[in-house]
Simulated scan of single mutants.
Amino acid sequence: MKQEIYPDEYLLDILRSVKTIALVGASPKEIRPSYSVMAYLLAKGYRVIPVNPGQAGKEIQGQKTYARLGDIEEAIDMVDVFRASSALPGLVGEVLALTPLPKVIWTQLDVRDEEAAARAERAGIKVVMDRCPKIEYARLIG
């Protein structure tokens, strides 16, 4: 899919179908955007699993934090990325090593890598880049 245009139906389908979200780059600091997005998604009923190597084994918002995606012991529907664009190629490699594969990789505002997105899409994973699920949820679902 052309990465700058996402039909509302595409985003709605994702937001309505995913249940478990791995939030890569989760922060325990309330001033960080990842903290408020995680709180919002939890409040909307999603299971949110924080991923942050510096916080592994600790809790963020009452959820056990993992060092990396491969350490999570349950299936993930979506990976929400709060990392720099330069981290996406390696992160997509981590995602492609998961069994089962997540349905979606969603990258936050200003996070883009067309080649990494194409690699994920070739594996059958939907990709949303440069968008925030909190913003899109509020806009589309309320």
Rank of each mutant, 00 (worst) to 15 (best):
K19G: 09
K19V: 06
I21H: 01
A22T: 07
V24L: 01
G25E: 05
P28M: 07
E30G: 06
E30T: 14
I31T: 15
R32E: 13
Y35M: 08
Y35G: 10
Y35S: 08
A39T: 15
Y40S: 11
L41P: 00
L42P: 01
L42K: 11
K44A: 13
Y46P: 01
Y46L: 07
I49H: 05
I49W: 02
N52V: 14
G54C: 04
A56P: 06
G57N: 06
I60Y: 11
Q61V: 08
Q63V: 13
Y66Q: 02
L69P: 00
G70E: 02
M78C: 14
M78W: 03
R83K: 11
R83P: 08
S86R: 14
S86L: 07
A87T: 12
A87I: 04
L91E: 05
E94A: 03
E94W: 00
L96I: 08
L101R: 05
L101N: 03
P102F: 10
P102M: 09
V104R: 01
I105D: 04
I105F: 11
T107E: 01
Q108P: 05
E114P: 03
E114F: 12
E115W: 05
E121I: 08
E121W: 04
A123I: 12
G124Q: 12
G124S: 11
I125K: 10
M129G: 00
D130E: 10
C132H: 09
C132W: 03
E136K: 03
E136D: 07
Y137L: 05
